[in-house]
């Protein structure tokens, strides 16, 4: 067991981990941040996406020890300082971009990183950008709409109704 320290949602955190402990398990079990979900264990579903030093990463595909010292942001760190929903989170609620909610954390984290790199994506760029995140409930319709809305575009006009 090794003590691994990193900055998570702006706070320096430490937990004892085995060498084989994945970042997803470190966050969930070591730190109790269960908002990051594990949907497949094999880096294909995207439910576990977090930001490591500002980059979207599937946290089930990286060892906790390998990101020691990094700045990590999880879904728990995405709300505004006053506790209100952040822009991406609010767009997901406004446009019904979630149903069961299990994939949602990963969708929000991926979206946030996507918009940082491409502030006004086209519909096709959004769909391509979300390709690593599986949702079984929404058919992606309202997720894509939410991402377009979060980018400040007229999502209602761009989407079918």
């Amino acid at each position: 067991m090794t003590k691994v320290t990193m900055t998570v949602n702006g706070i320096s955190q430490s937990a004892e981990t085995e060498g084989r402990t994945l970042l997803s398990a470190y966050l969930r079990e070591g730190l109790g941040l269960t908002g990051t979900h594990i949907g497949c264990d094999t880096s294909q579903c995207g439910a576990c996406v977090v930001h490591v030093d500002g980059v979207a990463v599937k946290s089930c595909s990286i060892f906790a020890q390998d990101v020691a010292g990094s700045r990590v942001t999880t879904i728990e760190g995405m709300a505004n300082e006053d506790g209100s929903l952040g822009v991406v989170q609010q767009a997901f609620q406004d446009h019904h971009g979630l149903q069961c909610g299990f994939c949602t954390a990963g969708m929000v984290m991926t979206t946030s990183a996507l918009l940082k790199g491409n502030p006004r994506p086209t519909e096709q760029e959004v769909r391509h950008g979300l390709e690593g995140n599986i949702c079984r409930c929404t058919g992606y319709h309202n997720i894509v709409k939410a991402v377009l809305a979060a980018s400040g575009q007229d999502a209602v006009a761009m989407a079918a109704e």
Binding site: Q89, Q93, G101
Partner: peptide, 20 residues
């Protein structure tokens, strides 16, 4: 009506089985 359950799912405060 916008969904009230969304708030917990969007902030990582849901209570799925694996989280318990």
């Amino acid at each position: 009506t916008k969904r009230r359950e969304d708030v917990r799912f969007l902030t990582g405060t849901g209570n799925y089985l694996h989280d318990i």
